[in-house]
Simulated scan of single mutants.
Amino acid sequence: MPPFDPPLNAALSLASNLLGVRFDPYQVTNFLVEIEGLVVGGFSECSGLQAETEFLDYREGGVNEYMHRFAGASKYPPLVLKHGITQIDGLWSWHQDVIQGKIKRRNGTIYLLDRQQIPVIWWNFKEAFPYKWAGPDLRADSGNVAVESVELSHRGLSRPSLGNLVAGIGAEISGSIGLSGGF
């Protein structure tokens, strides 16, 4: 399969060869969830980072070699957050407000961390609210941690690209030291 971004792949390859820097995949065990500026707790699981664009097939009369495919609406499944129950009850309170009809949509971010616990990739979700809460299965014969689950309905995901981040950092640096033209 050909590389998606040849200049970026060439730069990464050069950095790897000259500097001995490795670009290993990140582990799924290091992540944080932040909602409206607050880290809402350590989660044992986060799922639902998906986006799907529906399509419509259209068969044109007399054309038998292919079918036209038109893009439709995009949809996002709920984000599912699971963690051990503690006295911190911000998500529970937010869900209780929804039950009482006080819907407050909030934006948030899911950060994937590297081994030094530094955010390296993140996904922003917008206008979310908790629509489902599930408590733990309580069993006297088990020594497992009591886990609760909260599902968030949201209106989309975005992920800043490396190019946008580098351009933004360059603009910040050039502005702070008085350079024109940026990097």
Rank of each mutant, 00 (worst) to 15 (best):
I110H: 01
R69S: 07
T86G: 13
T53K: 01
S47E: 13
G61T: 06
I103M: 03
S74C: 07
R69K: 13
F23H: 07
R59A: 15
L32A: 12
E34D: 15
G135D: 11
L91Y: 06
R22I: 00
S74W: 01
L32K: 10
N30A: 15
M67S: 11
N30D: 15
I99F: 11
A51Q: 10
T109S: 08
C46I: 12
A51W: 03
I118R: 10
V33C: 06
F31P: 06
Q87E: 15
K126V: 15
E34A: 10
V80I: 15
D24V: 01
G37M: 03
S93Q: 15
H95M: 07
G37D: 05
Y76G: 11
D57G: 05
N107P: 01
Y111H: 12
D137L: 14
I85Q: 11
T109Q: 11
N124S: 11
N107T: 00
G90N: 12
Q50V: 06
V39E: 14
H95D: 09
N17G: 08
Q87S: 15
I85F: 09
V80N: 12
Q96V: 10
F125V: 04
N17P: 00
K102A: 09
F23G: 04
W92D: 14
G41L: 00
E60V: 13
G84F: 00
G135I: 06
S93A: 14
L81R: 12
R105P: 02
Y66E: 10
L18C: 13
Y58Q: 14
F55I: 08
L32D: 12
A71F: 01
N107R: 02
S47G: 09
Y111V: 02
V120G: 04
V28I: 06
I121N: 05
K126P: 00
I118V: 15
G61C: 03
F55L: 03
L112K: 00
K104M: 06
F55H: 11
S47K: 03
G37W: 03
P136V: 06
I35M: 08
W123R: 02
Y66H: 10
Q117V: 00
F55Q: 10
G42H: 07
G42M: 05
S93C: 12
G41H: 01
Y131C: 09
D97Y: 02
H95P: 11
V98G: 05
E36A: 15
F31I: 05
E127C: 07
T29I: 06
E34V: 14
R59G: 09
P77A: 14
T86M: 05
K132N: 14
I103Y: 00
L91F: 04
H95Q: 11
V98D: 09
A71Q: 09
P119D: 10
V120Q: 14
P25R: 01
W122T: 08
Y26S: 13
L56H: 08
V39Y: 11
R105L: 05
Q117K: 08
L18A: 13
L91D: 09
Q116M: 05
L38W: 08
P119N: 07
L91Q: 03
H68M: 08
L81H: 11
L113G: 01
D89F: 08
Q50R: 08
I121P: 05
G41A: 01
Q100G: 13
G20E: 02
L91M: 11
